[in-house]
């Protein structure tokens, strides 16, 4: 079965086509541009399908990263996946976007994934290993994170951005920081993870955004009096 995975919850616009029969990625497209998710996503999907010589109606499952992530970009991926699903009757399965980054790390000991939530905050979650998240993702200022979280090895763009906070390196055997650990989200990793979960009959999330924050909006107290005093 073909899986089409896409994720726009981070600055990456990432798309991958995965064949569960051969357990391999047929084609993938990764671009990092936090301001143009809306423009880049559909052309990327088109390119991936063309490169693999497949069409969208051959896809058996759509896999979409549901965040957490900055909302405007996040919604591009979800609206796209849901509309694909509605048009073709293809099931749309959600995955936590942080799980894709965790999975791509291949780490076997506990660590943290942190992405940039803007406004000086990170989206983060704790993992026991690359496949096992411990608890729900959250959003916090790095300096407000519990001590045991910041002392854990951390991966993702949020860990890079706040290197002063996340000080424990994901060390290779030699001790220096490993350069091969993922920074950006990759739909290929998301697709591999989805294939594993499907094979094991595991649950997915509904394709609904994980915002983790309420919209900013103030209830106006009263209108401004215009009569000069």
């Amino acid at each position: 079965m073909l899986l089409l995975a896409l994720d726009t919850a981070t600055p990456a616009v990432t798309v991958a086509l995965y064949d569960t029969d051969g357990d391999r990625v047929l084609a993938a497209a990764d671009q990092v541009d936090a301001r143009r998710h809306g423009e880049l996503l559909l052309p990327s999907v088109d390119r991936v399908l063309r490169e693999a010589g497949r069409s969208l109606d051959e896809v058996g499952r759509l896999i979409v990263g549901v965040g957490p992530g900055p909302y405007t970009g996040l919604r591009v991926g979800l609206a796209t996946a849901e509309a694909f699903g509605a048009a073709l009757g293809t099931p749309v399965l959600g995955l936590c976007s942080l799980d894709g980054i965790a999975y791509a790390s291949g780490l076997e000991s506990p660590f943290v994934v942190a992405t940039d939530a803007r406004r000086k905050e990170v989206y983060w979650a704790r993992y026991a290993d690359a496949r096992t998240r411990l608890g729900d993702p959250a959003v916090d200022r790095p300096e407000d994170l519990p001590e045991d979280v910041v002392s854990m090895p951390a991966i993702g763009a949020g860990a890079r951005l706040y290197e002063g906070t996340f000080t424990a390196p994901c060390a290779a055997d030699g001790g220096e920081r490993r350069a091969d650990l993922p920074v950006d989200q990759s739909a290929a990793a998301l697709a591999c993870l989805a294939a594993q979960k499907l094979a094991k009959g595991e649950d997915f999330l509904p394709p609904r955004p994980l915002y983790l924050r309420r919209p900013d909006a103030r209830v106006p107290t009263n209108y401004k009096v215009v009569t000069p005093k």
């Binding site: 809306g38 969208l56 405007t72 591009v76 509309a83």
Partner: peptide, 19 residues
């Protein structure tokens, strides 16, 4: 509204492309 428009534009593209 930019963010509001983007939801419709994304959905419309996907819908048109799929069909």
């Amino acid at each position: 509204l930019a963010g509001a428009l983007l939801v419709g534009v994304s959905a419309a593209k996907a819908y048109a492309y799929a069909l």
